[in-house]
Design a protein around this nucleic acid. Structure first.
Lengths: 143, 143
DNA sequence: TATATTTAAGAATAAAGAGTCTTAATTCTT
DNA sequence: AAGAATTAAGACTCTTTATTCTTAAATATA
């Protein structure tokens, strides 16, 4: 459902929120190390997050990225939209080309419920909430 | 979430149920024509459905496929499992490697709800129900 | 100013998924 | 028995996604 790039981007955003938030600049290299992933791959996805207005970036020594908004104002759906787009929430589960609310396939309404619930969860869950929950539950923010 | 192959396979199974069910043998070529899709691609996926025990196949003139079970006994989840596998239902939404019920990530429980609801829907919805609904609602079985 | 550090951009490569084709095996019909 | 129809199997190509790398641009610091 989420691409590898999108999952990694969300994990990265969680880490950035935890480690620096809106204040401290974190080098992408550090993020890649913490996530135990490819710097190259991560850096490319981070560029999309910058273009989408979710991160500010700074070049040069002491450079890196930080949140462009308050953690409570960045929702999971924003990251999904920036990386994968919202096609998942807009197309028929079975690929019927003409399926719509007015001309539904046989599982359209059942699926619409589930999809709406997922969309709701993604648009209500903020980075702030995630990070606070993880800290509260003594869960490693990244693992 | 579902691959193109899986969506098409479900549509094909719906059509086969509608057109022949357990009784009548339908050539894959006819299915491809009705679905307005590639015979080659469909045929390859149909092979998986045969191997998974969802379809019987018959070679030669008058050959084709028919359901290997009663339409009420074939659930969407069976098709998903045959084509895509169940990985979606078994792995962390964010790709945290060690995420589990015992060691959950911050959205594990929220997501587990949604995923369970989807699984439930997929394992409760049978081909019989889908086809009957479409016929009842005067929806083209394939469109 | 020179150097080192870091992101930006895009090229290059690898892997996976999608889609096509060819040949073999089977089986109905004549 | 021969020919035609149909699935089975696997090779092949194309597209997309994932991943790596190279070069350019920006900037802090000595």
């Amino acid at each position: 459902m989420l691409s590898a790039a999108c999952k990694e981007s969300i994990r990265a955003m969680i880490y950035i929120t935890h480690a620096g938030g809106e204040r401290k600049i974190i080098p992408v290299k550090d993020v890649a190390e913490k996530l135990d992933t490819s710097f190259y791959f991560l850096a490319k996805n981070v560029q999309k997050l910058v273009k989408a207005g979710l991160l500010f970036s700074y070049k040069g020594p002491k450079g890196g990225v930080k949140l462009a908004k308050k953690p409570e104002d960045i929702k999971l759906i924003d990251i999904v939209q920036a990386i994968d787009g919202l096609e998942f929430f807009e197309t028929c589960l079975l690929g019927f080309k003409e399926c719509s609310d007015e001309h539904p396939c046989a599982i359209h309404h059942k699926w619409a419920d589930k999809r709406r619930a997922i969309y709701k969860m993604f648009s209500e869950t903020s980075l702030k909430e995630i990070v606070e929950d993880m800290e509260k539950l003594c869960i490693d923010v990244i693992f």
